[in-house]
Nucleic acid binder design. Structure first.
Length: 313
DNA sequence: GTTCTAGAAC
DNA sequence: GTTCTAGAAC
């Protein structure tokens, strides 16, 4: 009897052996190394018929499993023969089935070399635009000849794009330049309303000088920080509800947004934008580093907060 | 930072 | 059934 293997065309893991008439459930997990949340942990149920040389695949997950360009559909079962390609989910994670004889019969080899029997029911966008990239070829050299390379998973670039202008983390730099957002400005700082206020009053004080993060602060910034603090205090003084609300001024220890910014926030936390634990914790725990009276000059005691230089204000 | 969503947890 | 959570995308 021949032996059936499920072979990852991405070469992302070793072939998985399918025993004759034994059901195997596969999906997201260590066996396939698929981490894509769109892929269920139990995405497919596979069963090999080693005598007849095919497997059946039943789609268990919600998102589509394909055999070539045909969606299996949840709850449905179809066959996969050598030459056909099984995509675990969303036309990604391509697999082939391979039957190898442990005897010397040539049938398996003949089967393997058969051209794809896939019906050309491809939609017009089909595979015409899919160009095999040179980077693909190195790992492809064992693949059977085929005119349709699998959809290429495009890995996110290794380069850090978070510093590029359009990235979400650069949003404050855009907002602070927008006159409609500004509620105060002078020659050193600008104040804007937080776009997603976590309380009834929530301002951000930003220096015009580009200081990407607290880690970039140096002693020469002390006067600027003091000025930011003074401007923050002025915001309270002009606030009509200041007398009945408590305020805190401070920095997030590990902010998501680039460009140093001082939060000036009332302590009512009455806001539809305060939606989860992370929001709450970011203003009510040590993650919120109060600016006034805070003194650190080295990382020592505050290494967890990733602050290099902090000063008495 | 927010939003969206699948799957887990309840 | 609803809520929570963790990732991914932006």
């Amino acid at each position: 009897m021949s032996v059936c293997s499920l072979v990852s065309e991405d070469d992302s893991h070793k072939p998985i052996q399918l025993h004759h008439q034994h059901s195997v459930t596969l999906g997201r997990g260590p066996e396939t190394k698929i981490k894509d949340k769109k892929c269920s942990r139990e995405q497919v149920e596979l069963r090999a018929d080693c005598n007849r040389g095919f497997i059946t695949v039943k789609q268990l997950g919600v998102n589509p499993t394909n055999v070539d360009d045909v969606v299996v559909g949840k709850g449905n079962r179809v066959t996969v023969k050598p030459g056909q390609r099984l995509y675990m989910v969303n036309q990604q994670y391509p697999y082939r089935v391979r039957f190898t004889e442990d005897t010397s019969t040539p049938r398996s080899a003949a089967e393997l070399s058969k051209p794809s029997k896939r019906a050309h029911r491809m939609s017009s966008e089909g595979n015409a635009e899919k160009i095999k990239s040179p980077a693909n070829t190195a790992s492809d050299h064992h693949r059977m000849s085929d005119d349709s390379p699998p959809p290429k998973k495009i890995p996110s670039s290794g380069s850090d794009k978070s510093e590029s202008a359009g990235h979400w983390s650069q949003g404050l730099k855009v907002s602070m330049q927008d006159p409609k957002m500004q509620v105060y400005k002078d020659d050193r700082v600008v104040v804007i309303k937080d776009k997603y206020p976590k309380a009834r009053y929530h301002w951000l004080v930003l220096p015009w000088d580009s200081i990407s993060s607290l880690k970039a602060l140096r002693l020469e910034h002390v006067e600027l920080l003091k000025h930011m603090q003074r401007v923050g205090d002025q915001m309270l003084q002009q606030c009509p509800d200041a007398h009945k609300l408590r305020f805190r001024l401070g920095y997030h220890a590990i902010p998501s947004m680039s460009h140093v910014h001082l939060h000036v926030i009332s302590q009512d936390f009455d806001s539809p934008c305060l939606k989860n634990k992370k929001h709450w914790n970011s203003f009510t725990t040590d993650y919120f580093v109060e600016s006034q009276g805070t003194l650190y000059t080295k990382t020592a005691g505050y290494s967890k907060l990733q602050i290099n230089v902090f000063v008495v204000l």
